[in-house]
Design a protein around this nucleic acid. Structure first.
Lengths: 194, 194, 194, 194
DNA sequence: TATGAATGAGACTTCATTCAT
DNA sequence: AATGAATGAAGTCTCATTCAT
């Protein structure tokens, strides 16, 4: 059931649809974005969308799937060589913030905000991916706690971090006083008591 | 334009509509909740809703308005007599968590998640109320910082707290290992370094 | 799941929809009849149809159901007092022909021609009714055979009669050389050897 | 406008399309069969169909045409040497039943059931062929009547036979109690009083 | 000949809203 | 205040057909 990854493929029509959809879903929400909106922005007619996706929801589902994979890729790359638990946590935080605000993964916040828009079937599929993603966080936080760098319960810490990170979507402005990097630092400082 | 407060009025038909709507909006989201759903749960027919509200959006708008007022009421009551900045912060956190999960204000998270569903006109009205509400938080956090109990920027701290608190809606279970009170304590501990 | 009978209710909006649909389905077939066609002929807008029926198919389903019940009513009435097996067969044949061509049950042929247009769920429901209807035929033919008035296998005889009767829909013209009554007589003569 | 006969040509792509279409049209009906369904079963893409047929309807039209020709061929062959009117009628009945259920002409019933799906233009063309086919039946039945073997009106007899024969499509099972040959015999016995 | 992306008309359906009763 | 039939705009989706490659 897992499709090829096309989100970053600049040539692919599916990729173009996915990128446009990500932007519109983030901006207006899934329900308020019409397939005509998406098609118009892509430069095709609405009927043509269904040549690539069986229905509107599958656009959201595939988008979510690829977004998770993309963040995992970034984490994998940046974790290479990092051994210190605190450094590894900072990578996770930075990657998640990047995913929420960054160039490519624009729309990671959709994962939380549009969860209800998926059918139960799709939810189950994405859930499996999300579980793996969250497990990575838990492993990291458990190591940190074992090393004495965390006083809170790891799962609770993850909930707080996720909430704080996702919430940045509602207020963070790239041209404001903070860079994403400094945001990541402060979030880590908050959770990791010295 | 500001209407009377009816959310807590058990007899009032408007109050019943508002409470039902709060529950459904939180569960399914505004767009996926139909006026028929609301009417059915209230026990009337959909057409009758429009004797109480001019349109669907106004239900959401009035709901948001009353929810803010309700939380402010609770804060006002519990802040009475509290002078210590740290104690006052704890009251705010506890009240916000109560609003998100508690009996009456169920649906406070709608304020963030369904923001986009309001028309610009309604947004402006609610925004004024929200600004006042957020100002209360900032004042409290500034006092705390002045007293040396906060290392982070007050506005940033508020964003983190809000994110963490709202996120609890996605995972917190009353019958789980935490009480709302302990959650409030831990959130305060996180932000307020001793 | 069985709804009230409204096909013959001249006042009822549902009844009017059903009668119009019967006529159009018979004329153009189910698939080539649009809900707009039906609504236009009824004198309402297409959206209003769905106030009465959950979807297009349910119009066909309820229509089929009521048509069967209607024919059974007619048979019941005309069978009263008839004891002779041959006479009883003639009643069945005449009623079925009436249903196919007559004033009221116009569209009985839909039962055969549009069978495939129903979803499996609807098919099952109608099938139960149809079975009862066919059982009445078999009982009649068995009695006739027991009385020595039928040489063919009863079930085979029913198949032949049904085919011949339904086929009349494709060629019979009320202003042609035959009346429906004479058609019934000849069909009975054909099957019942003296 | 008359095309070559390709239905039985195993190699020809057009022949393959026609055979697949016959099967699908009979199974689901013309309107519920998509060109994609046909193409998929043939093993090509939907666009490629239009290299062989100008449009969907022409598939049905050519199919109908060839089916008639095919039955006429069979009749021609089996009528050779038969002089007795009753024997000749039996050939016609057997051939028609073969066409409805047999290997190749699978879908002969389409001629009646999907008549409405043709445009007037196509209807006219097929009508001419059908008239010739029906004339053959009438001639045969008239001869039979002249010979005293038929009491009913020839045209009426034909209608009855056609209906009964077509209806077999809805109930006849090759592994049931009847062979097609015995079915033909019984149908002839029914019509031809000794 | 075949491909398959794209078309575009039109289908069914949903749903907030209106209004006579 | 409530009803419930009706509205009508807008939505998702289907599908025969076209055409550059």
């Amino acid at each position: 059931m897992t499709s090829d990854r096309v989100l970053e493929n600049q040539q692919s029509a599916k990729g173009r649809v996915l990128r446009v959809a990500a932007s519109l879903f983030r901006e207006r929400g899934f329900a308020r974005t019409t397939v005509r909106d998406i098609a118009a922005e892509v430069g095709i007619l609405s009927g043509s969308l269904f040549h690539h996706f069986p229905n509107k929801e599958s656009i959201l589902a595939q988008l979510m799937e690829e977004l998770i994979l993309l963040v995992e890729d970034a984490m994998e790359r940046q974790l290479a060589g990092k051994r210190e638990p605190r450094d590894r946590l900072r990578v996770l935080v930075a990657c998640e913030l990047q995913a929420i605000h960054g160039e490519i993964g624009t729309g990671f916040s959709i994962l939380v905000t549009e969860w209800r828009s998926l059918s139960p079937a799709s939810q189950a599929h994405i859930l499996a991916l999300r579980d793996r993603y969250e497990q990575r966080w838990l492993d990291c936080l458990k190591n940190l706690k074992a090393a004495g760098g965390l006083s809170a319960e790891p799962s609770l810490a993850r909930h707080f971090i996720r909430g704080a990170a996702m919430e940045t979507w509602h207020w963070y402005k790239p041209d404001g006083p903070f860079t994403l990097a400094s945001l990541a630092d402060q979030l880590v400082d908050l959770v990791v008591h010295p």
